[in-house]
Amino acid sequence: MTLVRIFSARRLVAMIIKEFRQMRRDRVTFAMMICIPLMQLILFGFAINSDPKNLPTAVLTADNSPFSRSIISAIQNSLYFKLVKQLTNETEAQRLLTLGQVQFVLNIPVDFSRKLIRGEKPVLLLQADASDPAAVSNAVAAIRLLAGPVLERDLKGILGDLRPGFTPVDLRIHPMYNPENITQYNIVPGLMGVVLTMTMVIITSLAVTRERERGTMENLLTTPVRPLEVMLGKLIPYVVVGYLQMSLIILAARVLFRVPLEGSLVLLYSASLLFIGASLAVGLTFSTLAKNQLQAVQMSFFFFLPSILLSGFMFPFQFRYSF
């Protein structure tokens, strides 16, 4: 009897060769292995920007003085702020902030220059949309540094004694919507999108592929059932599942993490139907393209990666380059 070796290089080589041969046959998997790193490179390299600049800013000012103009041009020169609107109306400013059309409102009060000259340290208010703290934090840091030195040039002559080692203005920053900067407030609602995309796309991408792989599709086709009935029948249960997941996350957000819920719940639920529907449709498309369940899962990940990276959940949603 021949001795059976514990480890045989030959058997190992045989396994390796077989694995490579199978890899070559499965074109989709091979393409994914090449495409995913490439896509990551492009996304991380070009699109993801952890130091976003040119954030839309509105200036609310009734004080048209050289001082306020200096401040406005200074913050623009920092490149973090991009002045999109100059307003005199407080409610309009709040509306823009709420709509997300601007991320900052710089409020220069009426008596700003008067108080400045009198050395009364006037208040300069920056309201920041802190619902995306990663995006605004660098800009906030920049304005903190700017506020003092920017007026140095203007404060000369007899005003020179107001200068050294002393901040002429009182800069106050109001992070709106999440003033305490509680991480959960950003993560928990964002997770709803992540969970929904992940489960909706992956599960439906498997749905039709599984029927085909197990041969049950063939049986289904011989019955009078129509394609539309099959598709809707496949999607509707997952719409229910999607809503169940959503409710669970909202419940956990309220009870476990105490995330405040502002606005209409009905609107949130009805708008989510669009999101769920779109995710399911993407999954269903994959399931018709994929030859087997493995491919279906790979395709879902192929979709999942850019969708998460570009969603603003992990990185601020601001492009370094505008496409």
């Binding site: 197990r214 041969g215 049950t216 599709m217 063939e218 049986n219 011989t222 019955t223 009078p224």
Partner: peptide
């Protein structure tokens, strides 16, 4: 072919019911 489907019973080569 739709009308035929209602009156034909087809049994595929491999087991094609839900396991």
């Amino acid at each position: 072919s739709t009308q035929i489907k209602f009156q034909v019973g087809y049994m595929a080569q491999r087991f094609s019911l839900y396991e």
